[in-house]
Amino acid sequence: MPSNLYDIEPIERYLLGQMEPAERVAFEALLQADEGHRAEVENYRRLFGGFAAIRSEAFRKLALLWEAEADAASDEVELIEWYLNGQLQGPGRNAFEERMLSDEHLAGEVEAYRQLHYGFSAARSEVFRDKLEGWESAKSSPVALKAASRRPLLYRIAAAAAAVLLLAGFGLNWYANSHYSRPALVASYYQPPRSETIMGNDQPTLTTIAQQFTRANELFQKQHYAEAYQAFDGLLGSLPAAGLDKFNHQYFLEQSEWNRLLAAMAMDTPPLDPAGEARRIAGADGHEFQAEAKRLSRQLQSVWYKWAN
């Protein structure tokens, strides 16, 4: 049957779910009886499905934009909070605990937040205990004494809260400085060169590069970070023309990039952006220090790093 014999309007209402139940039943009965009508509905279903798909694509882009604006940096903290306050249960809790076993950074964050959690919980209990005592003394004391009894109560509450916060503060400060200060991070990530890796005496420039590398590491180990930075940077500049084999080229490149980053981090005014360079290495598939760079990136974004530096 020609398509212009069918009314589009009810077809649209049917496909967009705008029919009342009774009308829908009647319309479906009509379709059952007329193959041409059914085919017509299917044609329009494709059209409306296509429009809906275009609309979904636009919404998906919008949702990605919202996600980019969401505070993703706090997601990890939120996860830790769920774990500590018991909201994360069942298989999710087990998976999180397994992750902690293999992720030292995560375990450290959980421990730090646990201290905060306990500190606030203790402060709350202290305040509540004093509140109970206050109610009790208010019941048993004459009215005239009520006002006078408040001062010591408030004083004790404030003192208790301050003591807990002070203790928590000392603990957190110690944790932040010993794990997240720049010197602590640099020391934890630096690895002295592996001399056995340097092979291939048939490459004339290898000795020069190896000497440059050794010198740069010596400067680093003596904590002459600005000079070490220059030395690693210079070595990276010489590498492309050195004509080393792939193995040695890769070795000196990745070692020097990583150590140059650490030297920059140790300087008061880093000549490159440590967070940006850590992200770059973290994104470089196959880089010897990719895993370390991923961990370092997270640490550079953590509240502890900001606290300690």
């Binding site: 990890e76 996860l79 909201q87 994360l88 069942g90 298989p91 999710g92 809790r93 998976a95 999180f96």
Partner: peptide, 11 residues
């Protein structure tokens, strides 16, 4: 939270 908890999904 729901899907990390019940489905043990990665965040």
């Amino acid at each position: 939270l729901f899907f990390i908890r019940y489905g043990a999904m990665a965040p």
